[in-house]
Simulated scan of single mutants.
Amino acid sequence: MKAIYLYDTTSREFQGSKLVDDDYVAATGETEIKPTDGLYEPITWDGAKWNGTDQAVWQAAQQAKYKAYIKEHPEDAPQPTAEQQQLAELIKNNAQQSTLNAQLIKQVAALKEASTTHTDTTQEVK
Rank of each mutant, 00 (worst) to 15 (best):
N94M: 13
T53I: 12
K106H: 11
D21T: 12
G52A: 03
A82P: 00
E72P: 06
W58E: 07
V20N: 03
T28F: 08
K34T: 10
A68M: 00
W50P: 05
A68D: 06
G38P: 04
I91N: 14
L90C: 10
D37V: 09
Y69A: 05
D37Q: 07
T53W: 02
Q85F: 03
L19W: 12
V25E: 09
Q103D: 15
D23C: 07
A68G: 00
A48C: 02
I91S: 14
A48T: 14
P35M: 06
A60I: 01
D37E: 10
Y66T: 13
E89S: 09
H73G: 06
E72M: 06
T36S: 08
Y66R: 13
G52M: 03
W45A: 07
A88S: 07
P80S: 04
D21S: 12
A64M: 03
A64E: 12
V108D: 07
I105M: 13
Y69I: 05
A102S: 14
K71A: 15
K71T: 15
P80C: 01
E32C: 09
P35N: 06
I91E: 15
A109W: 00
I105D: 15
Y40W: 11
V57E: 14
D37T: 08
I43K: 05
I105Q: 15
A102Y: 12
N94Q: 15
E32L: 12
P35W: 00
Q63C: 03
A56E: 14
V25M: 01
A60N: 09
P42R: 04
Y66Q: 13
I105H: 11
D37P: 02
D21L: 09
G38F: 01
Y66C: 08
Q59D: 13
E89F: 05
G38V: 04
L87P: 02
E72I: 00
A95R: 13
T28S: 14
T81D: 04
N51C: 01
E75N: 05
E32A: 10
G29I: 05
T28K: 13
A61N: 13
L39R: 00
W50Q: 02
Q97M: 14
A27N: 13
A77P: 03
G29C: 02
P42M: 03
W45F: 04
D46K: 02
Y40Q: 00
L39P: 04
P74D: 06
D37N: 08
K92H: 15
Y66S: 11
A26T: 02
